[in-house]
């Protein structure tokens, strides 16, 4: 199983602060994200879902345990190597502020490759632009696009370097339901039609239902997994956590 994981964490612990204010955001989490799958991470606020994603993606470092992208252990990498890894092997979609306001749509999409100074795969990029449906907006600035369009550009940017894994942090958090649906549809196509791997943090059961599997976190621990999720089942699961929380 772990051999086919695009990204995984092993016995991951993340502690913020120390002494009385110590917070264990991640507590011995072991989890793999399989290649070619769309995984959603869910959980109540403070459950550690964003921390898990940041550590798995090499944006943050673990207090103990290991994080791998493919066969590379992240803890041993220098800042520079980590940066290059993010640039070449990982894609990101954030909740907001995904694009540089000074660059055009086209320049934003190829930014990671431009930073690397590597050749841009024209065919692949054009195909991506086709898929996200922004062919007529390439010379526009982000401020001239709607929120949904901006997130679609972000998805294209995340996929442009054919990364091993794309991490999306609440990618639909700021969008209306129709735009959100479009972005989620794009992420789904990336996995099922282009063979990419996507890991998405969300608090929205409807968004989570687009994934192949939902992973639930509570209090920094893995608390459950749900293959083939639907919005109703996810919602029920979350409610059960809330009841457990209330009972305690």
């Amino acid at each position: 199983m772990s051999g086919t994981a695009a990204a995984r964490v092993t016995a991951a612990v993340k502690v913020y602060g120390s002494g009385e204010v110590e917070v264990r955001a991640l507590d011995e989490v072991t989890l793999g994200f399989e290649t070619g799958r769309f995984t959603a991470i869910m959980g109540p606020s403070g459950s550690g879902k964003s921390t898990l994603m940041h550590c798995a993606a090499g944006l943050d470092t673990l207090t103990s345990g290991q994080a791998h992208i493919g066969g590379t252990e992240l803890g041993s990498l220098s800042d520079k190597k980590l940066t290059v890894l993010r640039r070449e092997r990982v894609g990101f979609v954030f909740q907001a502020f995904n694009l540089l306001p000074t660059l055009t749509v086209a320049e934003n999409i190829t930014l990671p490759q431009d930073l690397a100074g590597s050749r841009v795969d024209q065919e692949w990029t054009e195909a991506l632009i086709d898929v996200v449906g922004l062919g007529d907006r390439l010379r526009h600035r982000p401020s001239e696009l709607s929120g949904g369009q901006q997130q679609r550009v972000a998805v294209a940017r995340a996929l442009a370097s054919r990364p091993e894994v794309v991490f999306a942090d609440e990618p639909t958090g700021n969008l209306d339901s129709r735009s959100g649906e479009e972005v989620l549809g794009l992420l789904g196509r990336a996995v099922h039609e282009m063979g990419r791997t996507v890991v998405m943090v969300t608090h929205d059961p409807v968004a989570a239902a687009h994934a192949d599997e939902v992973v639930f976190l509570a209090d920094g621990r893995l608390s459950g997994r749900m293959p083939q999720p639907t919005a109703e089942r996810v919602l029920d699961q979350l409610k059960s956590y809330d009841r457990a929380e209330a009972a305690r």
Binding site: K80, T83, V84, R86, R87, F97, L100, P112, L115, A116
Partner: peptide
């Protein structure tokens, strides 16, 4: 700040 963070997360090195 956020923009710089974005640049760093999509692969801009500290040197760059």
């Amino acid at each position: 700040t956020r923009e710089l963070g974005l640049l760093r997360s999509v692969g801009q090195t500290r040197g760059q």
